[in-house]
Amino acid sequence: MLRRLQEVPRHLLVCEKSNFGHDKSRHRHLVQTHYHNYRVSFLIPECAILSRELKSLVMEMGPYYVVKNLPLHELITHEFINTFVKKGSCYALTYNTNIDEDNTVALLPNGKLILSLDKDTYEETGLQGHPSRYSGRKVMKFIVSIDLMDLSNNPDSKKYGRTSWSLKEKKPLKFDFLLARHNAEESTMMSYFSSYQIQEHQPKVALSTLRDLQCPVLQSNALSGEPEASCSAPELFDWLGAVFSNVDLNNEPSSFISTYCCPQPSTIVAKAHLCTITGFILPEKICLLLERLCHYFNEPKLAPWVTLSVQGFADSPVSWRENEHGFQKGGEHLYNFVIFNNQDYWLQMAVGANDDCPP
């Protein structure tokens, strides 16, 4: 039994407190460097209907595109780099690939192309990289980082020629890709990839009103919780997961599904609004949503706090910045803001076993 307990993969939750008005607050940087997001949820207690401004922002989180069987070498051509990468805020991620089994690729807005390749593919490409940090004794995965901006500055260099030859002729690779840009003409990407099977998508939005919701009592200065005063940040994190998953929190003795209940102290909220957005959601859009939620308290509200939760793609090769991401048994990398009416906030960041500590 002890041996089995030791095999449970570790999960890491980092919690910190700050204020949006502080000069050294890093909330914007953290959002901007978590590049590939598939779900955004926010919960507003004591709210039955979203404001017009907030609902309008929610409905404008797209578009993004799915391109089928796109050759990887298309992402390193001078035309692609000049059209999309050099103009900034271009994102791409392989779709329907498993990080622990398949080759996966991510394009970051800084122009870095990150390849997570199995051993055979890595050796066939001949590209320079390094073993995955999570390969174990027998290295089965390798990470290759290609700086597209550097390649574009030296179009006639041997490095560019070798990289292009490697991906176009020596080891051609094709993937289904998710692609998106911030502040760009919608027709540009559709026309650029018109020779491939490309579809435009809008994120899916689900709005719901939760009635008689038992909510934990929170105080902004009690991050770790204080007896009889405030729920702690880790307890809130678990509770939010239960709410987002529509788990019954009644803790009935006859229930064999869930015995989880709301942490104490708690209070009953007559109405709470839950919004969930699912798709390929850019950090720039999340920054706008976070800012709008901060302004939610510009006028007096019954709610003492609101939350904004963001989940990254489980099979992205990176989590924050260029930090390598793995899966093993979880694959999670996510963060949550608790925004208080005095502009204080809690920030919670969680990763699984195959990840570095969050930034």
Results as ranks from 00 to 15, higher is better:
residue 151 L to H: 03
residue 131 P to M: 09
residue 33 T to R: 00
residue 170 K to H: 13
residue 14 V to N: 03
residue 261 C to R: 05
residue 98 N to I: 12
residue 335 Y to H: 13
residue 108 L to N: 06
residue 146 I to L: 15
residue 248 D to C: 12
residue 270 A to Q: 12
residue 198 I to L: 09
residue 16 E to M: 03
residue 60 E to M: 11
residue 71 P to Q: 10
residue 120 D to K: 15
residue 164 S to H: 12
residue 103 N to A: 03
residue 116 S to C: 14
residue 233 A to K: 06
residue 346 W to T: 02
residue 357 C to I: 15
residue 155 P to V: 13
residue 222 A to M: 13
residue 18 S to I: 01
residue 28 R to N: 00
residue 109 P to M: 04
residue 47 C to E: 11
residue 342 N to M: 01
residue 43 L to N: 04
residue 290 L to V: 04
residue 294 C to M: 06
residue 145 S to A: 14
residue 58 V to P: 09
residue 219 Q to P: 00
residue 340 F to N: 00
residue 155 P to I: 11
residue 226 E to V: 11
residue 271 K to G: 01
residue 222 A to P: 00
residue 94 T to I: 14
residue 78 H to S: 15
residue 165 W to K: 14
residue 181 R to I: 00
residue 342 N to H: 02
residue 172 P to T: 14
residue 117 L to P: 09
residue 189 M to A: 05
residue 158 K to C: 13
residue 247 V to E: 06
residue 94 T to D: 11
residue 33 T to G: 00
residue 295 H to C: 08
residue 297 F to M: 02
residue 53 E to Y: 02
residue 280 F to I: 07
residue 207 L to D: 02
residue 308 L to I: 13
residue 43 L to R: 02
residue 232 S to E: 11
residue 103 N to C: 07
residue 245 S to H: 02
residue 34 H to I: 01
residue 139 V to A: 08
residue 321 R to H: 08
residue 86 K to Y: 10
residue 236 L to A: 02
residue 231 C to M: 05
residue 91 Y to S: 10
residue 326 G to D: 03
residue 7 E to W: 05
residue 273 H to I: 05
residue 321 R to F: 04
residue 147 D to N: 15
residue 45 P to L: 04
residue 303 A to F: 07
residue 311 Q to W: 14
residue 14 V to P: 01
residue 65 Y to W: 15
residue 55 K to W: 07
residue 14 V to M: 11
residue 57 L to M: 02
residue 211 R to N: 09
residue 166 S to Q: 07
residue 164 S to A: 10
residue 290 L to D: 01
residue 37 N to D: 04
residue 161 G to W: 07
residue 16 E to N: 07
residue 25 S to M: 01
residue 260 Y to G: 02
residue 194 S to C: 09
residue 339 I to C: 02
residue 272 A to R: 01
residue 153 N to M: 11
residue 205 V to I: 13
residue 329 K to M: 11
residue 23 D to Y: 02
residue 204 K to I: 04
residue 59 M to R: 13
residue 215 C to P: 03
residue 223 L to H: 05
residue 180 A to L: 12
residue 221 N to Y: 06
residue 199 Q to E: 15
residue 52 R to Q: 05
residue 110 N to R: 08
residue 358 P to T: 03
residue 121 T to C: 15
residue 219 Q to W: 01
residue 270 A to I: 04
residue 285 K to M: 11
residue 335 Y to P: 06
residue 33 T to L: 00
residue 166 S to R: 03
residue 359 P to F: 04
residue 125 T to Y: 06
residue 304 P to A: 03
residue 336 N to Q: 14
residue 189 M to D: 03
residue 139 V to F: 06
residue 154 N to M: 11
residue 217 V to N: 06
residue 232 S to L: 09
residue 68 K to P: 08
residue 98 N to L: 13
residue 11 H to Q: 14
residue 84 F to W: 08
residue 31 V to E: 00
residue 34 H to D: 01
residue 96 N to R: 15
residue 15 C to S: 11
residue 308 L to S: 10
residue 78 H to D: 15
residue 283 P to E: 08
residue 181 R to W: 00
residue 62 G to I: 08
residue 88 G to T: 05
residue 104 T to A: 07
